[in-house]
Simulated assay, not measured.
Amino acid sequence: MTRPPSARLVALLIGFSAIACAGPMFAQTTIAMSGLQTDPAAPIEVTSDTLSVSQSDQRAVFSSNVIITQGDLRISAETAEVSYDGASGQITELQLEGGVTLTTPTEAAESETAQYIIGTSHLTMMGNVLLTQGAMVVAGDTMLTDLRAGTAQMNGNVRSSFATGQ
């Protein structure tokens, strides 16, 4: 005699099927990140072990133990290529590579590479992005952050974990 599947087993199978089929719907997540707000006019300080400057290309490459700060925002990486305006000397863009880590008093994120466009306050982290915000952890392929608005959007293979308070 064959026993029919229990209601609990059927519910679990339906739930897992719904999650598996809904995968693409969860490929993007928008996150409020008030701790990542920064003033784009705040001074940027860059330190490293080595600096190479090309005046003709208006680029500087900081390498080894790179640390960038702007207000409460701190970014570290192995290398940072800095583009700047030749006339004013103002930094316009940062290209970061190698163990990029971003920290604020309330958030931390890491990725393989990142691009920070100073004028628009847009920071894009790419490659195995992991964001920690209190007890919440979100991972994905890329994270697009608007540092002026304090918002971020995680894209591609998004996974998250939330504390339940229990």
Rank of each mutant, 00 (worst) to 15 (best):
G71F: 03
A7I: 11
I67G: 01
S88D: 05
S34A: 15
G35S: 13
G119S: 15
R8L: 12
V66W: 12
L9V: 10
T69E: 10
T47E: 10
G98M: 06
D49L: 12
Q55P: 02
L130Q: 12
V53W: 07
I117Y: 07
M25V: 01
N65R: 14
T79W: 10
S17C: 10
E112S: 11
E93G: 04
S48F: 07
S6G: 12
D57N: 11
L9M: 09
Y116A: 05
G127D: 03
G127M: 03
I91M: 13
D39Q: 12
L73T: 04
V10S: 00
E112C: 00
V82R: 12
T106Q: 15
A18K: 00
I19H: 03
D39H: 11
N65P: 04
S111Q: 06
S52A: 14
V129D: 01
S52D: 14
V129Y: 01
L94Q: 03
S76D: 09
S6C: 00
G35H: 09
A20G: 13
T69D: 06
S121H: 06
T47C: 01
D49T: 11
G119I: 00
V53N: 08
S6W: 00
E112V: 09
E97T: 15
T47Y: 04
H122S: 02
L123H: 06
T29V: 07
V61Y: 10
A27E: 13
V46E: 06
Y84K: 03
T30D: 14
V10L: 14
P105Y: 10
T104A: 09
I68L: 14
A32K: 02
A20Y: 15
Q58K: 13
T103R: 09
T120S: 15
D72H: 05
T30R: 15
A11Y: 01
G89K: 02
M33S: 06
T124K: 11
Q58S: 15
S64A: 14
A60D: 02
G15L: 15
M25D: 00
A60V: 02
T69H: 04
P24W: 05
R74S: 13
R59Y: 02
T124N: 12
T124F: 05
M33T: 10
G89D: 01
S76L: 01
N65D: 13
V10W: 01
Q95A: 14
Q55A: 14
S48Q: 06
T101V: 14
T79V: 08
M125F: 09
G119C: 00
F26Q: 04
P5N: 01
S88E: 06
P5H: 03
P24K: 02
L9Y: 03
A22E: 05
S111P: 09
S111R: 05
I75V: 15
V61C: 08
